[in-house]
Amino acid sequence: MPQLRIVVLVKQVPDTANVTGEAMKEDGTINRAALPAVFNPEDLNALEEALKLKDRHDARVTVMTMGPPAAVQVLRDSLYRGADEVILLTDRAFAGADTLATSYALSLAVRKLGGADLVLCGRQAIDGDTAQVGPQTAEKLGYPQITCVSRIDELSAPADGEAGSGAITATRSIEGGFETLTSPLPCLLTVTGEANDPRPASVKMVMTYKGIAAEAMPEYDDSYLNPESDDAEVCMLGRDGKPVCRAKVVQWDHEALVADREALGLRGSPTRVKEIESVVLAQSEARMVTPDEAGIAELVHELIEEHILG
């Protein structure tokens, strides 16, 4: 077993940041179905922090997502970048979950893995922007938290076989400044986009894992990740020269998590959406300027004349 166990919580989200003309309906509202599903940007930053730690430590990076079966794509994307183990939480019982019910399911799944030394996730997801699932999952696990992390300053891995040893120091962004905190492991961190530039997918990994499907594995058994084991399929050598075993996409439902149905999905969600109002955009009244030298020069001239520029 590796010395450091890192779990990264990720989410597949509609790409709300790039609403193009095509996603706009005639009445000026957004056609959500027309938005492509993407890896939540700050979750990629969280994964990158995990992979950076793995570059320096004997670590296993486990990526976990809760979502519809199609969310398997973010797990494939994680494997392409170097995750060791991936887990898909999918079940109708999880549907309609707000942040509280989501954090309940995620915390059970982390427990099923036997806990972690470090849980990382993006600060917030671009579809809801709540930034709540991280702290709520930390609370449910009884882990300390450091949110809005823009830098991991130092990590001392837990000593072999010594539970509760190890520590992490991280810097979080606050209004107009920063805070540096240190926490014992285990700890949960939420990571911001400032932290890093995520590495691209490795072509070799894409070849290895392209189209890999999820398989239900209600019992947690990671022996296929141990090169010594009979179940293992060694597919390459890692950068440290050690054999890397082929991952599986492990799928768990609410029974695998031994979850309380009443605390899952819509039933376990205190909040309800009462009403949704689409933001209707008024017809454009802007004066359009041609994007050439003459058009721009005329515009600048006019703004100077009106003392707007000057």
């Binding site: 959500r32 671009i126 309800r272 949704i276």
Partner: peptide
């Protein structure tokens, strides 16, 4: 606002 600001949602916590 939610969904990248494309909708305004009214949330309640009735129970």
């Amino acid at each position: 606002p939610a969904f990248g600001g494309n909708i305004i949602a009214t949330i309640i916590s009735p129970l």
